[in-house]
Nucleic acid binder design. Structure first.
Lengths: 148, 148
DNA sequence: ATCTAACAGTTAGGGTTCTAAGTGTTCGTC
DNA sequence: GACGAACACTTAGAACCCTAACTGTTAGAT
């Protein structure tokens, strides 16, 4: 939930608004499959980065190792994820999305690209290029999300 | 959490990335004060719209009346929110942010405008105007967040 | 006036996520 | 080797949010 404004004006307010519209659709799609938003985000990450260890997941999602542990328990119980320890390193566990997990995310991705197309419909190709350039410039040096 | 990509390319991926960076900072700020993201969003809404009833909150946040009830219990217990029933209508409750609640959100807002400035730093004034124009165009006819 | 249905909100119970404290494993130093 | 610190992860317990079922209130129809 993030409908902080009724009539957004600042650029970041607008972005939040737009992103929130897309996210809401994605969350609904995911929730119908019985997963939370956080679980889906981790599953997407696992499909793109197979075999990472839990510490990596904690870093990218900026949460604690404990939260990752609980979260993966839920995903594992449903058969979307698998954890294996490799011989020679008994304390790390490599995490993989199962075929069922990958399939779920594939469906999610196609649904989401459809939504993206719908959202960007008001812009022509030149405008989209400009937008992408500006956003790239911003994203290039985002401040480290360390608190003020 | 929404770090779905390691190297985002699409415009909406970029927006998600940027928004997520800001949101993460905001969430940390809020969590240090002992609130969840959802609770903060509702509190912001209440500061801007004093006296709404719980059904309104459920509509704007697109959740259920039950969730709003639990959420407000947490906010009320901490003294950030107050619920009053008006004579003549015994079944609706008008909800107000207390001074403590308003003060909290005021601090949050100033912190966030600082973050916004930091994030937009790479763009000059002309670029910011272009960006805002493009985003406004998109936001103008966002698809209704009804599921596909 | 009564009866029903819709409404506004709450309670109960389960899953999720968080903080704090606890295992077990590896590395570095002596 | 042996010891201690750092590391990777788990468990326990609390708060949160959600679905389903519930209580109490209002409005409308007969």
């Amino acid at each position: 939930m993030d409908a902080r404004e009724t009539t957004p004006t600042g650029s970041l307010d607008l972005m939040r608004w737009i992103v929130w519209a897309q996210r809401k659709i994605g969350d609904d799609w995911i929730r119908e499959r019985g997963l939370s938003h956080e679980q889906s985000a981790v599953l997407v990450y696992l499909v793109r980065n197979p075999g990472v260890i839990q510490r990596d997941i904690a870093q990218m999602s900026r949460t604690s190792a404990a939260s990752v542990s609980s979260l993966l328990q839920g995903l594992e119980r449903r058969g979307f994820v698998e954890r294996r320890t490799e011989p020679g390193n008994e304390r790390s566990k490599r995490v993989y999305a199962t075929p069922a997990g990958s399939e779920l995310i594939a469906g999610f991705d196609t649904a989401m690209t459809g939504v993206e197309e719908t959202i960007l419909a008001p812009l022509d190709q030149a405008e989209r290029a400009t937008l992408r350039a500006l956003l790239t410039k911003i994203a290039a040096d985002l401040p480290q999300p360390t608190l003020s």
